[in-house]
Amino acid sequence: MAEPGPFRSDASVVQLAGRLLCWSLAAAMASAAADASLHPHLSWWGAVWPLPWWSASLAALAWTVLRAREKAHRMPPQDSARSDWEQAA
């Protein structure tokens, strides 16, 4: 039997994309706060501090696509009426 891993199902990939999005947003806010409050005068800082914002944008796009794909492939519950499932979607 294969051992369960983080990449075994679509749900886990969606969760990982969501975690990446959260961490990217945290890094982006931290870098923006550092830029606003500390005003670093490092030559490379101007190129580095926007990178977490780009990462957050890409992670948000990936999460959106993966979540839509997950919802599209989900089957409706067998014990409820189809109209209830369509109304919830």
Rank of each mutant, 00 (worst) to 15 (best):
S55E: 10
L58G: 08
A32K: 02
R74K: 08
S43D: 12
A59T: 04
W53K: 00
D84M: 11
A47V: 04
A56T: 03
P40D: 13
H41P: 02
S37T: 06
G5S: 15
M1R: 11
H39S: 13
H41D: 03
G5E: 14
L58R: 01
S31P: 01
C22E: 15
A27D: 10
A88C: 07
R69M: 06
W44N: 05
G46Y: 00
S83V: 12
H73D: 07
A32N: 04
H73M: 06
L38M: 11
A88S: 10
D35K: 01
A11E: 15
L16Y: 08
P77G: 10
R82C: 02
E86T: 01
P4A: 14
L58M: 05
A34K: 02
S31Y: 04
S24N: 09
R19G: 09
A72D: 07
S55G: 10
E3Y: 06
W53P: 01
A59H: 09
D79R: 01
D35M: 02
A17T: 03
A26N: 07
S37W: 08
L58E: 02
R8P: 00
A56I: 01
R8H: 14
A56L: 01
Q87P: 00
A28E: 15
A30E: 06
P50Y: 00
F7T: 14
E86G: 00
L51Y: 05
L42V: 09
L16A: 13
M29H: 13
G5K: 08
A2L: 07
T64L: 12
A11Q: 15
L21E: 11
L20R: 02
L21F: 10
T64Y: 01
E70C: 05
S55Y: 04
T64G: 10
E70W: 12
Q87K: 14
S55T: 09
W45R: 04
A60N: 02
L16R: 15
S12M: 09
D10N: 10
P4T: 14
A72L: 11
W44L: 13
A36L: 09
V14M: 11
S9Y: 14
W63T: 07
P77E: 14
S31C: 07
L21N: 10
D84G: 04
K71E: 15
